[in-house]
């Protein structure tokens, strides 16, 4: 079992030293349930008025026959309402397969590799998870962009998500 999955395509190519980046650590909890399916997870950035600044990542059953994995995207209710229903999935650089229990760190460099540029201001990172025959959970971490110095925000899930951390570097 992979515990730490090295960063997705969008992240590593750009050197963290050169551009301001956001690194998101998502813990998917190990659950002892009779029927377990990996959760669908969406990460996005919203402005204080909840409008969407960046659709960062959506982890779902991308490999199912006939694109059938898209049937449950609506279970990530907030993501579906704010973003998903306006899109045709898959989206390059955003869609990815579901992930196993454990910690996953992904980095995003706003303004690079398809991640929208963020104007200076206040934002909220939103992480939403929905699991087949399981529950749904949504966590928020507020942050300022760009960061004056390295800053970390965290949130702790109770059911479908574990610890979520956001590291913003100038």
């Amino acid at each position: 079992m992979r515990v730490l999955v090295p960063v997705t395509l969008s992240g590593l190519i750009a050197s963290p030293a050169l551009a301001a980046e956001m690194a998101v650590t998502v813990e998917i909890p190990q659950l002892s349930v009779a029927e377990y399916h990996r959760p669908y997870v969406a990460l996005w950035v919203e402005r204080p008025d909840q409008s969407v600044a960046a659709n960062l990542a959506v982890w779902y059953d991308v490999k199912m026959r006939d694109n059938e994995g898209t049937k449950w995207l609506k279970d990530m209710r907030q993501w579906w309402r704010r973003i998903g229903r306006d899109l045709t999935m898959p989206v390059d650089g955003v869609s990815g397969p579901t992930r196993a229990p454990g910690e996953h760190r992904v980095t995003f460099v706003p303004g690079q590799n398809g991640v929208p540029k963020l104007d200076p201001g206040s934002y909220v990172l939103v992480v939403e998870a929905a699991r087949e025959v399981g529950g749904r959970e949504l966590l928020r971490i507020p942050f300022e962009w760009p960061a004056a110095k390295p800053a970390q925000g965290t949130a702790k899930g109770e059911a479908e998500l574990g610890r979520i951390a956001l590291d913003v570097t100038p």
């Binding site: 006939d66 694109n67 059938e68 898209t70 049937k71 449950w72 995207l73 609506k74 579906w80 998903g84 229903r85």
Partner: peptide, 8 residues
């Protein structure tokens, strides 16, 4: 009433 997917 709210559906996603290719063939709902």
């Amino acid at each position: 009433t709210v559906l996603s997917g290719d063939d709902p």
